[in-house]
């Protein structure tokens, strides 16, 4: 079963279309990374799926139910983009209150356990008004998971956190996935998305321009491949012949005594490049194929 199914979702403010006919499917148990530049429509999209704003058109179903019924709300956890909390309430009181509102009241010990998971166990009885931005983020994540939801929406869960906290939250996201939870997360940290997410969707101007696994995105993006070879020096007699051939074969060649970089236009040509070195009796020490990173794929859009 799909955890999220979105069909032709639209949202406009007057003449301005924020979401323009988005179709998206998120399978149960997967982590989907949702990328896009500021203002691309990511938060608006999450806000529609979580009931914060109403769509102008289209439809969506969450956990097999059309729209967002009260029963479904009890099965999802949301960390909104702005972790504004009740300044007069402690972290512990927040979790107790939110679990009660969700209809699954948790004991003090259960709340303390969730606070420990996000690294706030030492601050459980501190008022949220005295929390730093990072601590508020952590409390936002704890609030999203307090009622043990099946599906989590995390809007930039690690932005504003220190490096140690980022690793801690990333590990927590992986642990939640191991427990079978589906996670829909947005982030501006592309390395984080590449590391955590099974599938990635890139949004631009209210439309999803790319979606798939990292491999699928790479295949879609890959118009040229750069092969870097470390090798023993090429015999002088062979040098001209080899590099002339490479220049005719590849689109770009950078040659040094013991290393060569060749840019080619198809994956199948990698073997031919290696064969050419072998035929010239040049021992290859290492071959590296530069694959496009998520950053390059993202920037291509």
């Amino acid at each position: 079963m799909n955890a999220i199914e979105v069909k032709n979702l639209r949202k406009s403010y007057g003449e301005t279309a924020v979401i323009q006919g988005v179709d998206l499917t998120v399978k149960q148990g997967e982590i989907l990374g949702f990328l896009g530049r500021n203002g691309a429509g990511k938060s608006a999209f999450i806000n529609i799926l979580t009931g914060i704003i109403r769509p102008t058109g289209g439809s969506f179903s969450i956990l097999g139910c059309r729209g967002l019924s009260d029963q479904v709300k009890k099965r999802i956890g949301v960390m909104p983009d702005y972790s504004t909390l009740y300044s007069s309430m402690t972290a512990l009181e927040h979790l107790q209150y939110f679990s009660e509102v969700s209809g699954k009241k948790k004991s003090t010990n259960q709340c303390l356990r969730v606070l420990a998971l996000v690294g706030l166990d030492g601050d459980a009885r501190k008022k949220a008004g005295k929390f730093s931005f990072g601590m508020k983020k952590k409390l936002g994540i704890a609030a999203a998971m307090i009622h043990n939801p099946e599906l989590l929406f995390l809007d930039e869960p690690t932005s504003g956190l220190d490096a140690e906290s980022v690793l801690h939250i990333q590990q927590l996201i992986q642990d939640l996935h191991k427990q079978g939870k589906t996670i829909f997360m947005t982030s501006h940290n592309l390395h984080e998305v590449e590391k955590l997410c099974h599938r990635i969707a890139i949004m631009k101007e209210g439309r999803i321009v790319k979606a798939g696994t990292m491999e699928q995105l790479r295949a879609h993006c890959r118009s040229t491949i750069t092969v870097s070879l470390k090798h023993l020096p090429v015999p002088k007699m062979q040098t001209a012949m080899l590099y002339d051939w490479l220049e005719g074969f590849g689109t770009e060649v950078e040659a040094q005594e013991t290393s060569t970089r060749v840019t080619i236009d198809a994956e199948e040509k990698i073997a031919q490049v290696i064969r050419a070195f072998n035929q010239c009796k040049v021992d290859i020490l290492r071959v590296e194929v530069d694959e496009p990173t998520l950053e390059e794929i993202f920037l291509e859009e």
Binding site: T50, G51, I52, D70, K73, K74, I76, V78, P80, Y82, T84, L85, F98, V101, S102, G103, A143, H147
Partner: peptide
């Protein structure tokens, strides 16, 4: 936002 995502 915390309330509307949890209850009606």
């Amino acid at each position: 936002r915390f309330l509307v995502t949890r209850t009606s």
